[in-house]
């Protein structure tokens, strides 16, 4: 039996948020899906959400104005352990920049780097870790 999961999508592109939401809903694993076009809003949401036992999967884009994906992860890593342990972060990008990909590996809270667009296949591979 697959456990239900919460999902958060952070992407400044409305379109990419839409794609991610669709793909996530298609998996049938989502209890909730919340999309944010501003990383700061997502961070506030995470901070104020009561701690639950349901795991939350976060897909965050790297290149965003105001607060980019790396800055988001850095801010996330400063949150209390009690909050952080409920989250698994995946970074997404259209970038083929080696530096970005290498940089992702430096963040302990980031599980993996994924190429855009998010596809049914890619997400099912990710979700295998949550059975």
């Amino acid at each position: 039996m697959n456990t239900p999961l919460n999902f958060i999508v952070v992407d400044d592109s409305k379109l990419d948020c839409f794609i991610a939401e669709k793909i996530i809903k298609n998996t049938g694993r989502s209890e909730t899906v919340n999309a944010f076009q501003q990383a700061t809003d997502a961070l506030v949401y995470i901070k104020t959400l009561p701690v639950t036992t349901t795991q939350t999967v976060v897909f965050v884009d790297i290149q965003m104005p105001v607060m980019n994906g790396f800055e988001f992860v850095e801010a996330f890593e400063n949150l209390p352990e009690a909050i952080r342990q409920g989250y698994s972060i995946y970074m997404l990008s259209s970038s083929i920049n080696e530096n970005d990909i290498a940089k992702v590996k430096g963040y302990s809270s980031v599980k993996q780097f994924l190429n855009k667009p998010l596809t049914n296949n890619a997400i099912s591979v990710v979700l295998e870790h949550f059975n």
Partner: peptide, 18 residues
């Protein structure tokens, strides 16, 4: 270029897939 040019293309590919 990879972000601003590839970005929209990848979005469209995503939508086509959906």
């Amino acid at each position: 270029a990879t972000h601003d040019m590839r970005g929209p293309i990848l979005s469209v590919l995503g939508i086509i897939d959906l």
